[in-house]
Design a protein around this nucleic acid. Sequence first.
DNA 1: CAGAATCCCTCAAGATACTG
DNA 2: CAGTATCTTGAGGGATTCTG
Lengths: 132, 132
Amino acid sequence: MKRPDPFQALCPTRRILDRIGDSWAVLILIALGSGTLRFNALKRRIENISQKMLSQTLKSLERDGLVRREVFATVPVTVEYSLTDLGRTLSQTVNQLTLWAEAHIGEIEAAQQRYDRGEGATEPEGRAAGGC
Amino acid sequence: MKRPDPFQALCPTRRILDRIGDSWAVLILIALGSGTLRFNALKRRIENISQKMLSQTLKSLERDGLVRREVFATVPVTVEYSLTDLGRTLSQTVNQLTLWAEAHIGEIEAAQQRYDRGEGATEPEGRAAGGC
DNA sequence: CAGAATCCCTCAAGATACTG
DNA sequence: CAGTATCTTGAGGGATTCTG
């Protein structure tokens, strides 16, 4: 049997990779990883996301079966978003990535400074490394 | 201590996530995961990548300390690319993602069809439709 | 509150051509 | 072979406005 080849542009696996490539989608997955959230709560949680991108990304995540959308007929209407079982497994996998990032961010920044020092970096760099 | 918060736009962790978001970078990481490759070999391996994006992405991966570039003074010149130790650990982490993708592509495609069909059903279908 | 619909504009990526 | 240097485009995303 043939395994999916991510190097071929039309490969389904490639499509998943592209979804991960969507920064907003990943942030939503992470945000919902710690529990159900309403639309505006999600918007407040993820700094700088526009409501357009939020609703658009949520819709495509729902379409992929990763996020569940529940509407409650209150006044005004209430909409809750949560991860499906499938979404939860992806969210956990993505979390591995953020763990890697947190563990290795220091090495990466060190490498960058080394690199920039080797090439024609004429600017006196004053960047502070470390957490947020 | 303060943990990195990926929801803040300037967070280092967010920058790593964005790097993963770079589809070409991920494909290069995967390609080099199975061994050293020369520039044009890499280009042949990854369908549809332009030489511009290849050299550009390689440069930033090198800057991040993920990829090692070695030049041999042959005629014409030979350049070999390989993963650093750091790059290898990231490549393996990314591989988890492709494994997830291969395992769940069927569920996702089923969900999409359900959604496109007027979002009536809620039954989880386990049928696999993947494969390139 | 939870979105849909518009306009608008940048900038990332492709195509092409040239070089050491 | 292994790149660099321009030019051009188009679609992704921001800002804004409107609605059930």
